[in-house]
């Protein structure tokens, strides 16, 4: 799943034989340098394919003296799977990472014979695909941020309220200029058309942005992404009999990868 300047990838931990759960400690995400690979499907092929890419990526690193880029890795996955076109590995991989040069989020998914599905929002795979689509479709927003600043101390309640709406709609990011925000506020349904209000808001915002130029540094993009992907996964697998039993969540940022274990429902 793509966030603002970060990406996340998550998996459940169940290994089962149809309705029977064999293990609740079977991770399906594998890290190759800066790139992460998720594999769903036949368990034996998950192991075989993840080992195969461990080998291929290690050889790449030794040969080229650099880490493999997410897009390069995606093409490697594609060509490797298609090599087995007429006797495929029964896996549906997902790749996530950040572009090495630009830091732009990169995600894509594949079918079992290596057809790449590039996406700018999210990729789902596995037995809970439908549920995941539903969850992601409703929770995901572009450039997700969470403000840890307490706006109520900085603004009158009305503006705070409106900022929240802007955040909710994904309209507040650094591309949106103050004047645009002002325009939206003044022409909105909230009926803040009173001239004195307008000037109050105007000075309020100008002051706010003047005093908080580092505002964007305080936007907690990875945290919000973590929350979104975790809720999407947990709630999706809870509606699927064949997955769940704990989860791993990886958040990839420019200079770090954070792995978190979610215990999840164990029933």
């Amino acid at each position: 799943m793509v966030g603002k300047d970060c990406v996340a990838i998550a998996c459940d931990l169940r290994l089962g034989l149809q309705a029977l759960t064999v293990s609740n400690n079977f991770p399906k995400i594998f890290q190759y340098g800066d790139v992460l690979l998720g594999l769903t499907g036949l368990a034996t092929d998950v192991a075989t394919v993840s080992d195969l890419f461990r080998y291929k990526v290690n050889m790449y690193r030794l040969r080229e003296e650099r880490n493999i880029a997410p897009s390069t890795f995606a093409n490697l996955v594609s060509s490797s799977l298609y090599e087995r076109r007429f006797g495929p590995y029964f896996v549906s991989p997902v790749v996530a990472g950040l572009d090495q040069k630009t830091g732009k989020p990169f995600i894509c998914g594949f079918d079992s014979i290596g057809c790449i599905d590039f996406a700018k929002d999210f990729i789902v795979s596995g037995t809970a695909t439908e549920q995941l689509f539903g969850m992601c479709e409703s929770l995901w927003e572009p450039d997700m941020v969470r403000l840890d600043l307490d706006f109520r101390t900085l603004f009158p309640p009305g503006i705070f309220f409106y900022m929240m709406i802007l955040l909710k709609n994904g309209q507040l990011n650094h591309d949106v200029e103050c004047s645009t925000i002002m325009h939206i506020i003044c022409t909105s349904d909230l009926n803040f058309t009173n001239a004195s209000y307008q000037s109050t808001f105007a000075t309020g915002f100008d002051e706010f942005f003047a005093n908080n130029l580092n505002l964007l540094d305080d936007l907690q993009c990875p945290e919000d992404l973590f929350e979104t992907i975790s809720q999407a996964l947990l709630n999706a697998v809870d509606r699927d009999a064949l997955s769940g039993w704990g989860a791993h969540v990886y958040i990839i940022e420019k200079d770090k990868v954070t792995k978190r274990l979610l215990k999840g429902r164990q029933d």
Binding site: D12, R14, L15, G16, L17, Q18, V22, F26, K28, T40, G41, L42, A43, T44, V46, P88, F90, G126, T127, L242, S243
Partner: peptide, 15 residues
Amino acid sequence: MCTDHGCASFIDKAY
């Protein structure tokens, strides 16, 4: 995630 005949029959059907 499955390890079993579900997928074995998957193999079967695929062909």
